[in-house]
Write a protein that binds this DNA or RNA. Sequence first.
DNA 1: CCATATTACGGCATGCGTAACGATC
DNA 2: GATCGTTACGCATGCCGTAATATGG
Lengths: 308, 308
Amino acid sequence: MKFHQLRYIHEVVRQNLNISAASEALHTSQPGVSKQIQLLEEELGLQIFQRNGKRLVGVTEPGRKIVELAARVMLDMQNIKRVGDEYSQEDSGELTIATTHTQARYRLPAAVKQFISQYPNVKLTIHQGNPAQVTEQVAAGEADIGIATENISKDERLACLPCYTWNRCLVVPPSHPLVQKTKLTLKDLAAYPLITYDFAFTGGTLVSKVFHDAGIEPNVVFTAIDADVIKTYVNLGLGIGLIANMAYDASRDAPLVSLDCSHLFPDSTTYLGVRRDAFLRDYMLQFISMLSPEHDKRTVQRLLHQDV
Amino acid sequence: MKFHQLRYIHEVVRQNLNISAASEALHTSQPGVSKQIQLLEEELGLQIFQRNGKRLVGVTEPGRKIVELAARVMLDMQNIKRVGDEYSQEDSGELTIATTHTQARYRLPAAVKQFISQYPNVKLTIHQGNPAQVTEQVAAGEADIGIATENISKDERLACLPCYTWNRCLVVPPSHPLVQKTKLTLKDLAAYPLITYDFAFTGGTLVSKVFHDAGIEPNVVFTAIDADVIKTYVNLGLGIGLIANMAYDASRDAPLVSLDCSHLFPDSTTYLGVRRDAFLRDYMLQFISMLSPEHDKRTVQRLLHQDV
DNA sequence: CCATATTACGGCATGCGTAACGATC
DNA sequence: GATCGTTACGCATGCCGTAATATGG
């Protein structure tokens, strides 16, 4: 059993059972991949892939287990390489972060700026997606760190860390009647057309629960993935916007006005997650500290169940 | 990075940093091992082993991490092979059980007999050791299943299953005055020279705690690893023996008499443990069912956190 | 007919074993 | 001086890539 063979089957599955695509992604030849897969199957004495003639049409049941184990082996190989890099080329490497739009746009920039100036030789990549995708990418080892509010902390494969809490605010045009109110109520929000995050993408489920529990039905006319889109439509006078409070910046978002809503909704907590069995480069820990300064490197390591 | 390089460093560590011994254990040449280790170190850009001239004298800090990861990779490779075997050669393979003397002698025989008749092509090996060793062997992947009363259920790396509970009995010569007593007390036990298990090897710590809590000091004249030794000395009239109740068999152990002590001590539970991330062959699950019939195969798989 | 997988084959890298050397205790 | 690790070298294995072939949609 060779290491490449595991990489091959892994990539073939990733590429929807297309050996040609896999061979390209692996920068090698089609026949090579085909051959090695056959050799592996022969060695194990079973079919990993279901074939229809010469076409791969599925993964057999034992094949699924093998692919899963292969992924773990590859992760560990990567971990070993990282240990090597950590002790030889301290400050270079890669860092891939998976996160949602809101975090990427409003919360990460400060930490990212600090990070790239301190670690200019680390190639930083940000993958954007919904919370489920973020979780999946970290779990699959495609991202080192995942940051999201929903979902991520529930996956067994990840070790998570509460990162910070936030709440919501309402953005309205300056002339809006609600600006006169001293303290907003849920009824106030329900009295106007509401624009907020797509429910699947953010803490929306929490928001909807609060309304539901109060027996109030908000008039949601429109949902969007990100606060910028929401603000645009609020500016057009299509409704009032309910967004994360960190997504409002008075100077940048003028003439829109923000009205605090934190008394209406419980705080949401944004979590940061890493794969439990991943080896974390020092700069990864540093990035986490930059993002949530209240956790220093040692604390992070402890909380994430790293060794000593 | 090649698989055998990982096997090489793993084995070298196992052999106390002796490359010659490792090469022999691996059925290959000394220079080959030496060379591959150097290549790996070169590829990773660091020293795995501390050298004093040409002598290996230790493992560097990054080396420890790498060795650990290497062990995991090898375990997963083994898992992959097992998946292969499971689906191709259903009923042959190996089963290594680590357990204590008491279990091996008095509890396993029935299950083992049933097992080898049903799976004649499975090579069954029993490693005997104290509870700490049992735990370690399973955790290191050197044994598939560990069975012990103490210790084993506390290791994070293992998934455990309560297997059965047991208590203790007193064995005495037929002429002993205690035979007349209808119900024994701790004081009765303390009144005579006591022979029992070595404290480190069994539920002895629990026994000593019971005495201590009652403010009674037993007169332990002698401790042994196993019940057979204890019974031998009881037969010689050197004292009374406190042993696991399953270690007494009226017909075999005559003329000794057993007196129930289960009202004096809380029940002890014997656990069965497997490595969390091990792939379990079907016959391993069957063995577990044979050992504790109240758990059927599905239950076992669920309890041990195997996938559906 | 095009896309895709398998077979065939030759060149090249690499791992292995034997033998010799060097170092450590 | 005995044990142990490293270096040197030749052989064999096996992987890779190109070209050719077969098969499925």
